[in-house]
């Protein structure tokens, strides 16, 4: 009997179902609980981990199905081109603030990482893994590999920057009463990549679109800066 169940859990469709369903529950909870902590991704992650541990399902079995969802990382990122196109007017008007903001932000992200890692005497593996932490996963993994970092540490830092940013940035915005939607969008996209962008989309269309643009531009800036390291 128990082997019948475990055959069910290791069916790739189970991994897909678990991911989609927990994300759906996450979005429903996030809609009702208006707290920055109630982030769909964070809720989905906790639900999935609880189910996997509870039913004693290995990560490998889960990924058997869930990898089909991960596979859509590039297409889902690609359609940000549409939100850039929709905001072409604002991009044209604010070309220099956006591009210079992204460049400064990327330099600041990488520079502060170097300084802080040195100050705390962290291992150089960690430093290299952390350098691309503010850009979208697909780019960050490439940059990390190119510099000699560890993929899973980079992924952790990227996810923390994304989810952490989606939680912390709205608090900073409220606390410091930041108002400019373009500057908010650029800051979201540069500091917290696609996860930040999905939060920025919730805050407003301009914020979301600019964040999507900034995420792409900051990604390019980071790739270019990394070429000099």
């Amino acid at each position: 009997m128990s082997s019948m169940w475990s055959a069910l859990w290791s069916n790739p469709l189970f991994g897909v179902l678990l991911t989609v369903l927990s994300f759906y529950i996450g979005t429903q909870i996030a809609k009702r609980v208006k707290s920055p902590l109630a982030n769909p991704l964070l809720i989905a992650m906790i639900l999935c981990v609880l189910v996997l541990k509870g039913l004693n399902i290995s990560y490998e079995d889960y990924m058997e199905g869930a990898q089909f969802i991960s596979m859509f990382l590039v297409p889902v990122t690609a359609v940000l081109g549409l939100s850039i196109y929709r905001q072409r007017r604002i991009l044209k008007e604010q070309f220099f603030p956006i591009v210079i903001g992204c460049l400064a932000g990327s330099l600041l992200s990488m520079g502060s990482t170097v300084v802080l890692c040195r100050m705390l005497a962290l291992h150089s593996d960690i430093l290299y893994s952390l350098l691309p932490k503010s850009v979208t996963t697909a780019i960050a993994l490439d940059v990390s590999e190119q510099l000699g970092g560890l993929r899973s540490i980079t992924m952790m830092a990227v996810i923390i920057c994304g989810t952490g940013g989606a939680i912390i940035h709205p608090l900073i915005i409220k606390l410091l009463r930041l108002k400019d939607p373009v500057a908010i969008g650029v800051a979201f996209g540069t500091a917290s990549h696609a996860i930040g962008t999905s939060k920025a989309l919730e805050m407003g269309e301009v914020e979301g679109a600019v964040s999507g643009v900034a995420m792409g531009v900051a990604g390019i800036c980071t790739v270019i800066i990394a070429l000099f390291l």
């Binding site: 889960y62 889902v76 359609v79 996963t137 952790m156």
Partner: peptide, 23 residues
């Protein structure tokens, strides 16, 4: 895709939880 973008990050975020030991 745009409105459900974060879905694709769910499997990755679980991989991250699995690898916490590296740190």
């Amino acid at each position: 895709m745009l409105s459900n973008m974060a879905l694709v990050f769910v499997p990755l975020s679980i991989g991250m939880v699995e690898d916490l030991g590296l740190l």
